[in-house]
Design a protein around this nucleic acid. Structure first.
Lengths: 217, 217, 217, 217
DNA sequence: AATGAATGAGCATTCATTCAT
DNA sequence: TATGAATGAATGCTCATTCAT
């Protein structure tokens, strides 16, 4: 599968300009969705001409795909960093939760984009790009659960695949709840207007929830 | 707050035609989102003229709000039916899970619409319509958790609000996983291509996950 | 030339209903002009159905032409009443001026319609309807001027046709100045915000203007 | 008050293109009025794309206001040129009459636009634009009449404001009679089909009319 | 005869994409 | 290579006219 959706010329420009374009695009796409995103706006915000944009990308879709691709790579690297250490499952989960709280806040648009992307029945191209991230995540979580089962830390009477899935579901919703307006409001309704000043409570309770679900008692 | 966004004439037409319009609209909005939804398409699919559509609704936004409103009412009634019986928390949760599996499959577009809607804070009107559903859900779940805590069935060392929130998060993701293309693919990656023929496993494992999280051990 | 633009059925309805229709139509046309006038509005204001309107008139244009025709007849009869008495030119002119002040105020829409009508290059049909009124007016004024010339009251060194024309020009602008928003504002600029409470001054000065122009000194 | 209703880009295009757009617009607006004027027509006639038109003007109203503004400026400058010389009132009036005959013929659409515009108080914006022209005219005429009164050339027993007003009324109707179909036909009825080949007579008789009205006898 | 719901062509406006400079 | 003006297809919405009841 093609994994680059930009033209050669996009690689030749300065790192700084490239970043400006990606930033402008990720904001526009994450805030308006693919169809309503405005290419001319992106160019203006990136401080380049539309003409140039079309020198770097064949069309709107390719720009979108590039942005998604970059976003996915970013998310993968965040996860990878957490997972490379040799911690216990419990520690890892805790690290992930904290990372979500920190990372989501400083990369709101990335999460919004993920939400947006999961929405559009945007060709199957998007899926092609994202699936390897989901594959990585799924594989990682599942194998850690299985390992922990073998080691006796985690109940042996559960389906590792499904439990990894439910675990990731909780993580995704946590991300949305920190980034997307709708889910932020919803979280406030459930927990109170003050939640967003109470990361510690949110994290520790989620840990308790997950630990109960997984651990041998 | 105004809760009807349609004109009087919309009430006068036959139930069948009204349903045709709502169906066409919910499909269009759920598949394209508000901005990219095409009013002319909706009219064509509903087998009426644009002119008529505008006799029933003042504008695109009002049609959208009506559709959201109807969708929310449907979801509320499904939940209400489950909750009115005097079951234990555990039974109730199990019933909800089964209901999600059944109801989502036959109302795919409703769930897609919810996902779409959560995507960008479409004016605050949408939020006004949906917030009472979220409020109802949040209140219901939280109070049941608290009751169960009092009765000694559920751990007393947890924050009922947050646990209710995490619980609903699992439910929402389950819905998306049965309705939205993206999340369906993701679920297949986690659990295997066969998941959608294995409702029993999905439900029982989720029950196990939740039971572990909640119950006194 | 056809001089009726309505269908037979329009004559069969009650005088009261007919008037309601004409009133609604004259208001709509005079306020919005032909193109922007709204047939459905007219029907609603006249308290009849669009369907009926189309039973009485073949189309929008015919309704417009009927309205113009009625308006013209009204104006003609007002003028006729003034002219039938055996007054001197000077008295007649004074009577016309006073009549304009009174009649225009209570028939604002008629004058607006005249202005509107003079604007549209509405087919030559309009012209056909109106020309006989203009012919009548022109003939009347001109012959009175000529008579007065013969009688020695009016300067003999003038072109009666043109003087009658200039005279009517003054009358038309007076009408507009009492009926049409734009010209009302303009008159206020020229004479002061108080003009419309000062009919006496306006009339007497206009008399003085015209007398000077016409009379032998 | 804002006095430019176009975007910056409109100033950047070639004088020739700018004129083409203004010409097309003035014709369309003067022939159909604001509501019925067709933007796509204007673009086509101006030989540019609709897209471009919207690069130069935010919307239909702004294009209209620009056209009105330009028209008013043109009329003001014509009047100003006549008035700057140090002639007697009588000479000035004669110059204005001749100027109307010449200028109206070569700027038919400007006069039609004025008529159209006076027809329905298009927002109060139009009035804002035009009122300063009316103010200028009113002030000019009135002060000249007053001066002439002081100098003993004009009767002292008249209201200068009203006489200036009646004078301008005659001028306006003369303009309409040279530009607008309806008023042209009317003038032919009053004076004969040949009027438009007889500027000399029209002017000299109008002078006679006005002189009689104003002068000390 | 009367009704008014239904129709669909028409217009203002937007925006992805092109191309002359 | 970079620019941004120009293009025109597409879409929300209106309203004269029709026609089943």
């Amino acid at each position: 599968m093609k994994s680059n959706f930009f033209k050669e010329s996009f690689q030749k420009i300065s790192e700084e300009k490239r970043q400006r374009i990606l930033d402008a695009a990720i904001i526009e796409f994450s805030e308006h969705g693919f169809d309503s995103a405005n290419i001319n706006n992106i160019a203006r915000k990136a401080n380049i001409s539309v003409g140039s944009l079309y020198k770097y990308f064949d069309n709107k879709e390719d720009l979108f795909l590039t942005v998604v691709h970059v976003g996915v790579e970013t998310l993968k690297s965040v996860l990878a960093k957490i997972m490379e250490s040799r911690d216990t499952l419990e520690t890892r989960i805790e690290k992930i939760i904290r990372a979500i709280q920190v990372h989501t806040r400083s990369n709101v648009h990335l999460t919004k984009l993920y939400n947006e992307m999961a929405t559009e029945s945007r060709s199957n191209l998007v899926w092609k790009i994202v699936s390897d991230m989901e594959n990585a995540t799924a594989g990682l979580y599942t194998s850690f659960v299985k390992e922990a089962q073998k080691a006796g830390y985690v109940r042996s009477d559960i389906d590792a695949n499904l439990f990894a899935f439910y675990l990731d579901n909780l993580f995704i919703m946590l991300q949305f709840s920190y980034a997307c307006e709708y889910y932020k409001e919803r979280m406030k309704i459930f927990v109170g207007d003050d939640v967003f000043n109470n990361d510690e409570l949110v994290a520790s309770q989620l840990m308790k929830f997950i630990r109960g679900a997984f651990l041998v008692n």
